[in-house]
């Protein structure tokens, strides 16, 4: 992208170029834009291979490239809490050849990181939602708590003991952390001590062993422990019940109003991405997400296939950005 600017700058300053060559160059560029894509498209993933975000990108690639007629390459740019990858796409030219597979965490980062500048997620051009996943509230199987009502009472009582309440999360400033803070607010702010972990595996061990009292995490990673009887699920935060956990009530059913929180991964373009590119990419993505094997791969993992319009993703991004801004400020959650 950078290179193109240099080349065109060079062309402008060179008097030897004939008008004819100049015109043909311009027309071919114009043509290239309407015929997007005319060369391989890069999906930037802000995390190393293997995680949920990486999976979301890779699972649709085969079908999307069939639809678009050009290869799609996944470019993993890990680091910086996902921000390095986001920043690359933020700086990219709006030609549609560098798109971001963005985790919903981009709506939390700008609030929690205060000295390291984080990309503003509202500046991206939304293309479409790739997948979503609800969170589930769990307690150890050994806990006396059987449902959400008992949970509230239990937490309030235990908070007053010298032992206190410990809740785990898969990272300070992660979705699992801020979601529990939101719930704590709804419960009337009982004293709850946050114990952050690095990823789900470590916190799962300590929850099962009873060292932490409660945890929110993605249904896809937690459901095996629930099925095996090592953890007890109290509610899920998605709008509908999760196919993998049909017996677990939604937050609304459990009695928590307006508690619809999802972890989502969307396809985003750089700012000012032309509408025709958005449209074409969105329809290719939707075709891929309707494919039976793609759906099966996503659902088997415990997530839900996304889809829908670019505006849907835009709305999702906006509401979460606003929600977390409020929660982070109210509870003074900061990451640096």
């Amino acid at each position: 992208m950078h290179a193109k600017r240099i080349v065109s700058g060079f062309a402008k300053s060179t008097a030897f170029l004939t008008l004819a060559i100049g015109l043909s160059a311009i027309s071919s560029m114009a043509h290239a834009q309407s015929a997007w894509p005319t060369k391989p498209v890069t999906f930037v993933v802000g995390y190393p291979p293997g995680g949920q975000t990486d999976f979301a990108g890779r699972v649709v690639v085969a079908n999307m490239q069939k639809e678009l007629g050009q290869p799609i390459v996944i470019d993993n740019r890990g680091g910086g809490g996902g921000n390095i990858g986001s920043d690359i796409v933020m700086q990219a030219a709006p030609d549609g050849y560098k798109l971001l597979v963005g985790n919903g965490v981009i709506t939390i980062n700008p609030h929690t990181y205060r000295s390291t500048p984080m990309v503003d997620p509202l500046k991206f051009t939304p293309i479409g939602t790739l997948l979503t996943s609800g969170l589930v509230l769990v307690v150890p199987a050994t806990s006396p708590v059987k449902d959400y009502k008992q949970f509230v009472q239990y937490i309030k009582d235990k908070a007053k003991t010298p032992e206190g309440v410990n809740y785990g999360s898969s990272g300070a400033g992660s979705l699992t952390h801020v979601t529990m803070e939101l719930l704590r607010e709804r419960m009337g702010k009982p004293e709850m001590n946050h114990v952050p972990y690095k990823g789900t595996a470590a916190v799962a061990v300590d929850l099962i062993a009873g060292r932490v009292d409660a945890l929110f995490d993605a249904t896809s990673v937690i459901s095996p422990f629930i099925k095996s009887g090592q953890m007890r699920a109290l509610m899920v935060t998605s709008a509908q019940r999760v196919p993998a956990l049909p017996d677990v009530p939604t937050a609304a059913e459990a009695g928590v109003k307006d508690f619809e929180i999802i972890s989502f991964i969307g396809l985003y373009g750089p700012p000012k991405l032309p509408a025709d590119v958005v449209k074409k990419a969105n329809s290719a993505m939707n075709v891929a997400l309707k494919d039976a094997t793609v759906r099966k791969n996503i659902i088997d993992r415990g997530d839900e296939p996304g889809g829908g319009s670019a505006e849907d993703l835009g709305k999702l991004t906006q509401t979460h950005f606003k929600l977390w801004g409020g929660i982070v400020k109210a509870n003074d959650i900061r990451v640096d």
């Binding site: 680091g79 910086g80 390291t116 400033g173």
Partner: peptide, 20 residues
Amino acid sequence: GTDVNTGMTRFTMNKPELID
């Protein structure tokens, strides 16, 4: 990099490449 217990970044000189 990032201090897991607080989520704060340490000794990174505000370089995002060092956060992890």
